[in-house]
């Protein structure tokens, strides 16, 4: 017989709890159901992340504007100068004086076409050729296309890079006229085409 009141109290409480434990046994079924739902949530998160990665990578188009600008410069340089000699149509003789031809049309002479049938095409190209002497003094310049694109080149030189800006490429080379006088020619080519090259 247990006489100690404290021990009696503890035993009574224990028996109540044990009987409760026997009739309402705790098992892991409830926990497992929650875990399986959780597992599906994890799978959905992973699937969503994979779809996001795929759309991020394959959704962005290839940007070929730099290549296009370089090809344009090559074509124009070939048209302005061949084997180190400037195109004769660049010069006119006025009063027995040799001058640069102001009416030299870059598009016609170099077989270029800047217009397209696309609806939103608002001048996708800009082309400029500048002629300098060997003391870096500018003598002459010709340009074709959308001149507003030239400002994009100055913005692009800054620290922050803006994706939707036009791509600018400028290159220089030397050439001679028929009198063996040397000129430095700087060609700037700007390609906009952001709809087809930037997401």
């Amino acid at each position: 017989m247990i006489k100690n009141k404290k021990v009696k109290h503890i035993l009574r409480k224990g028996i109540k709890e044990i009987s409760h434990y026997v009739f309402f046994p705790k098992n892991r079924i409830g926990a497992e159901k929650i875990i399986s739902v959780y597992w599906f949530v994890i799978l959905i998160i992973i699937a969503g992340a994979v779809v996001a990665m795929v759309s991020l990578f394959y959704g962005s188009p290839y940007d070929v504007r730099v290549t296009e600008a370089n090809i344009m410069i090559n074509q124009v340089s070939n048209c302005l100068s061949q084997s180190g000699e400037l195109n004769k149509n660049l010069f006119i003789s006025e009063n027995s004086e040799k001058k640069f031809n102001e009416n030299f049309n870059l598009l016609e002479e170099c077989n270029l076409i800047f217009e397209t049938k696309f609806e939103n095409a608002v001048g996708e190209y800009f082309l400029e050729a500048e002629f300098y002497d060997l003391n870096n003094e500018r003598l002459f310049s010709i340009s074709e296309g959308n001149s507003n694109l030239k400002t994009d080149c100055k913005i692009a030189e800054g620290e922050k890079k803006y994706k939707r800006l036009s791509k600018c490429v400028d290159r220089e080379f030397y050439s001679l006229d028929s009198e063996n006088q040397a000129y430095k020619i700087n060609i700037l080519s700007v390609v906009r085409k952001t709809e087809k090259n930037v997401k």
Partner: peptide, 9 residues
Amino acid sequence: YEYSFFNDV
């Protein structure tokens, strides 16, 4: 997919 070129040929 359409893409334009600048060479007048």
